[in-house]
Design a protein around this nucleic acid. Structure first.
Lengths: 143, 143
DNA sequence: CGTTTTAATCGGACTGATTACGATTTAATT
DNA sequence: AATTAAATCGTAATCAGTCCGATTAAAACG
């Protein structure tokens, strides 16, 4: 089942209405498959669907995020988004290729390692990304 | 030697001019000691030094970052900055208390752990922060 | 189906952070 | 003290993101 399908499913389950604007947004994000700057999403969607408003795009990006069907991040001071890649394991981390912007999941190393360094502290959340060249790009670029 | 002193020293060494605006910025960041939203830095400095322009503040934040005397991050979609806390070990990571916003350094767990998960990829950089309550706040708030 | 309800969209104006730039000042050098 | 190039100022512009009242259209229901 495609991620787009799952995303639409989740929208229905939550009582959120499935509008054609939302279908189009999800379809684009699904097709892209990787992180996309929100500004690019906005520009592209508005070029494809004249009359579509900024409001609709930004409002839905937030709604999708809260629903858990979209992940957002920041790269080079730019907000970037992608469809949630693993609905089974919402908590995971990414290796982001700086060449092709494709995303691979990685498992986090044990948090206990850090807890030992911060006696008494209550770690509530964390934030982790790896950047570099994916195997394919590394080979292609000969590095 | 204070961090402000070291920062000024680095400015001189790099050939960057030490203006009173830059001294004031560094002094404020040093006194604060923790991450501060850039917008707050801008508002505060302009209230203390009438005539100071946005341009000067934002330009210098970038210059300081490039010089390696300032670290920037993003929290709640807000750009935040602080003086570099460990000039000896520029590569380190932070635990940021969500209550008092104080920062503690942590050692990174071995990157090899992740390299094993991404055969062929060239990891170039990473990004890691921990959030939660520091020991002091955890006790104070009884959690 | 049609009707109804109300969430979602539209459009356009607005806000707030950040940048651009020509004119002016000033830190550092001699 | 004079020089000069870097830094600052002031103002305007840009750009991402938000707000809001009027309109449209999903979904539910008879």
């Amino acid at each position: 089942m495609s991620q787009a399908r799952i995303a639409i499913e989740k929208m229905k389950q939550s009582g959120m209405r499935v509008t054609k604007q939302r279908r189009a947004l999800v379809a684009y994000l699904d097709k892209s498959g990787r992180f996309v700057p929100v500004t690019q999403l906005d520009r592209y969607m508005r070029s494809q669907y004249p009359g579509l408003s900024h409001d609709t795009i930004y409002r839905n990006v937030k709604a999708f995020e809260q629903l858990g069907i979209l992940e957002s991040d920041v790269e080079n001071e730019q907000a970037i988004v992608k469809l949630q890649c693993d609905f089974q394991h919402p908590h995971h981390h990414h290796f982001i290729c700086t060449n092709c912007h494709r995303v691979q999941e990685v498992k986090m190393c044990p948090l206990e390692y850090f807890e030992d360094q911060l006696p008494g502290a209550k770690i509530a959340s964390h934030n982790f990304e790896l950047y570099g060249l994916c195997a394919e790009c590394a080979q292609k670029l000969g590095r």
